[in-house]
């Protein structure tokens, strides 16, 4: 029941992800810290990519580049609509369709859940009735309908993260950037949210870049895992996750799943993580 209403409208739409192409991107911060060096990644539209790598290697930096919040010193980062390649080249990155979930919820503490979730639409100038309706729908999707009028200070950490996720979903993004979104939560809550997110992706078809430190989370969610080296980050390994598209919760106990986790573990260990 929780997630059935909004899906009706999302499933009727075709897969609508966008493609991300990173070519030779480098980012050196003031003071000489090189976070990214010659990074090449091509992500086709609608792919769910898990990003792994040692702490401080440059994963968040990459997400910020893709979101257009930061620029590389060398190389290019392109976000393109595959159905409309010429147009995309003309107008550059498709900023309008990007959503970003930070490691912490980062809600506006003076707004209740509903008005927090409606914020992105408000900033884009969507009228009040439409944005509140969309916000209610997104809140229902993450199962927080009962908490819509509460303030962030009155929510648990897990609820706050779900509000943050709803805020990201409210614009129907075509690319979703998640930076260790559930890292601070207990294992069970995290698994539940992972399953919810996976369901949303299956129905919505957006492109997802998901940074995580959890190998099993990466294997459970990703179609592909990109492993970064120590700083400055390069792509150290690019592993396809050949699990079926349907991923029930008990997939985590299966042998092949655990072999994949082990493979990720070895790769990461080799890269000094």
């Amino acid at each position: 029941m929780v997630a059935s209403m909004p899906n009706a409208s999302t499933t009727s739409q075709p897969a609508q992800g966008v493609a991300v192409t990173v070519r030779g991107a480098s980012r050196v911060f003031e003071g000489g810290v090189a976070a990214l060096k010659d990074v090449d990644i091509a992500i086709p539209a609608g792919q769910f990519v898990a990003i792994l790598g040692p702490s401080g290697c440059g994963k968040s930096t990459l997400l910020r580049l893709v979101a257009g919040l930061d620029r590389p010193q060398a190389g290019t980062v392109q976000v393109e609509d595959p159905r409309d390649a010429d147009n995309a080249k003309r107008r550059g990155p498709i900023r309008d369709d990007i959503a970003y979930v930070f490691q912490d919820a980062h809600l506006l503490p003076w707004r209740n859940v509903l008005r927090n979730v409606a914020l992105p639409l408000e900033l884009k100038g969507v009228d009040r009735a439409t944005r509140l309706a969309a916000a209610r729908e997104a809140i229902e999707t993450v199962g927080l309908t009962d908490a819509a009028t509460r303030y962030p200070a009155q929510l648990s950490g897990g609820m706050r993260m779900r509000v943050s996720l709803a805020r990201a979903l409210v614009t129907r993004p075509r690319i979703l950037l998640l930076d260790e979104p559930f890292a601070a939560l207990d294992e069970l809550t995290r698994q539940r949210l992972d399953e919810q997110l996976y369901g949303l992706w299956r129905r919505g078809g957006m492109t997802v870049l998901f940074v995580t430190h959890s190998l099993s989370e990466a294997a459970f969610l990703g179609q592909r895992a990109v492993v970064f080296s120590k700083r400055p980050a390069r792509v150290a390994a690019d592993i396809m996750i050949d699990l079926p598209l349907d991923r029930p919760a008990d997939l985590r106990t299966e042998r092949h799943f655990n072999e994949l986790v082990l493979q990720l573990h070895r790769t990461l260990e080799r890269e000094g993580g």
Binding site: A67, L69, I98, Y100, F102, D104, H106, L119, K124
Partner: peptide, 18 residues
Amino acid sequence: VDPALIDLFRLYGASPLS
């Protein structure tokens, strides 16, 4: 102001006034 919130406002193209 929390820099992440400033990023969020930039991401959604908020005007300086809003």
